[in-house]
Amino acid sequence: MQDGVVLTTLDEFLNWGRKNSLWPMTFGLACCAIEMMATGAAKYDLERFGCGAFMATPRRADLMIVAGTVTLKMATRVKVLYEQMAEPKYVISMGSCANKGGPYWQYGYHVLKGVDEVVPVDVYVPGCPPRPEALIEGVMTLQKKIANERLLRNKWVKHA
């Protein structure tokens, strides 16, 4: 076993490493952030998916979990934080507010109607707020998405 040989494609090997070390950014906006913290804590333990290392700076993070209401004041900051993250980078939109404005969709003069207006979103997690299980499923969905990526053919690797 110690001298064994594992045969795989380079893409799959890289994706396997990347999907099991998704580092999210420490970034909570509203009540969804409380559920995100619960997901990261002992009971639900996001670290099981390699996703528990919440980074305190966008430059070290791969994943931005937009947890909560994105107001117009905050939207500009969200965009700046997303642009500061190093590629490849992913965004999970967590909760109804970040998905589509939530309860503010009709009369919320100050709320952005969905964070996908300013940053590209990979996975939407519905709920108000979503249970930790739902966020974990969102992370697992993103992991599946990463596993199917062809990183070496991607534009940012090609032109690097």
């Binding site: 117009l72 939207a75 589509k100 404005g101 009709q106 109607k113 300013v118």
Partner: peptide, 14 residues
């Protein structure tokens, strides 16, 4: 509009 963002985008309004 606010800073280039549409407050009520038509495609999002039901």
């Amino acid at each position: 509009d606010y800073n280039g963002m549409t407050v009520y985008p038509d495609n999002k309004m039901n």
